[in-house]
């Protein structure tokens, strides 16, 4: 009799587990910056005050996330065969995407309301509409990862190759290919300057020290901006571009012409930076800390789970 009760309880527990884990809801009017922690798979949400709103702890080994529109977040993992779409306001999983293993990055383009998944096993990029329906797929070069979109074009950095692929989002055909450095990572488009900034780790034992600037139309390499060491995270807001160099744990803030306005050491081995209100949030990967920084220095710091690798910021409260 006792055993039967235990079995029953276990069954109930398992069934409730299967029927969909439910996380703490996030108020749709709540701005946040969320750190995607990959060593202890989790998503930690912080408000403008640097206070933790909540943390979603996952069982799956997610390695990245992307905000889709306003209220959804797509969680994916390089070794996972499916990606999961969660609704923030309900804390529920709403969609499962059978994408196969090898997902390196997901980028959501607000303009076209599509998101793109890059895959290192198939060396492809796949486009989906905002309802997670697969649209088309294109094979690129070795290890497509960093992505950004502008004016109907998708720019994809092939991480283990020396090619940046430019695709037409509608036709999903490659319209241009640029020469870039190997191990490039981090891309941003500065429209007014007609410039594309590309960061990277550098090849072999020689670490990269610069952001390479390419012409938006021709793909010609225009100049480089010295931002040692290993600048890989690029984020922009207003007149500023913030670059995080993980090799020297340094945050550079430059104007849109590429002139470094100020820089400072932040965190231990940070991979991600994001503008968030009056701050630039920086995630220290080695010290599991999120830093809230401005020109004066680190204003706040808050501990997060192990391995904060990516930052998602939501400010556009509607």
């Amino acid at each position: 009799m006792k055993n039967q009760i235990v079995v029953l309880l276990v069954c109930i527990f398992l069934m409730s587990g299967c029927s969909g884990e439910r996380f703490t809801e996030i108020n749709p009017h709540q701005p946040f910056v969320a750190s995607v922690n990959i060593l202890q798979p989790s998503l930690s949400f912080f408000d403008y005050e640097g206070k933790e709103i909540t943390t979603w702890d996952f069982d799956a080994a997610y390695t990245g996330a992307a905000l889709i529109q306003h209220d959804r977040v797509l969680m994916y993992g390089h070794d996972l065969t499916e990606a999961h779409l969660y609704e923030l306001s309900t804390g529920k999983r709403v969609e499962v995407i059978e994408c196969g293993a090898g997902t390196t990055n997901v980028y959501y383009d607000e303009q076209t309301e599509r998101f793109f998944m890059a895959n290192s096993k198939t060396n492809t990029v796949t486009s989906y509409d905002s309802q997670a329906a697969k649209l088309s797929e294109q094979k690129l070069y070795n290890y497509p990862m960093s992505m950004t979109a502008h004016d109907g074009l998708l720019y994809v950095v092939n991480y283990k190759d020396t090619v940046l692929s430019v695709l037409d989002i509608d036709t999903f055909q490659v319209v241009d290919e640029w020469d870039i450095a190997k191990s490039s990572h981090g891309i941003a488009i500065l429209e007014e300057q007609h410039a594309v900034w590309v960061g990277g780790h550098g090849q072999g034992n020689r670490p990269n020290e610069t952001i390479d600037v390419y012409d938006l139309e021709t793909g010609e390499r225009l100049t480089e901006i010295n931002m040692p060491l290993m600048p890989i995270g690029i984020t922009e807001k207003g007149q500023e571009v913030a670059v995080i160099s993980h090799g020297k744990s340094t945050l550079y803030v430059a104007n849109r012409e590429g002139e470094v306005l100020w820089h400072q050491k932040v965190g231990a081995n940070p991979f991600a930076a994001a503008y968030f209100g009056k701050w630039i949030a920086v995630a220290g990967y080695d010290d599991q800390t999120i830093y809230f920084v401005n020109e004066q220095g680190v204003e706040k710091r808050v501990k997060t789970k192990e391995g904060p690798f990516q930052l998602l910021a939501r400010e556009d409260i509607k």
Partner: peptide, 16 residues
């Protein structure tokens, strides 16, 4: 002091 040698890029797939 080279961060590459120190596995600083580890979350990334590094051919090194």
């Amino acid at each position: 002091r080279n961060p590459r040698e120190l596995s600083a890029c580890v979350p990334f797939d590094i051919d090194y």
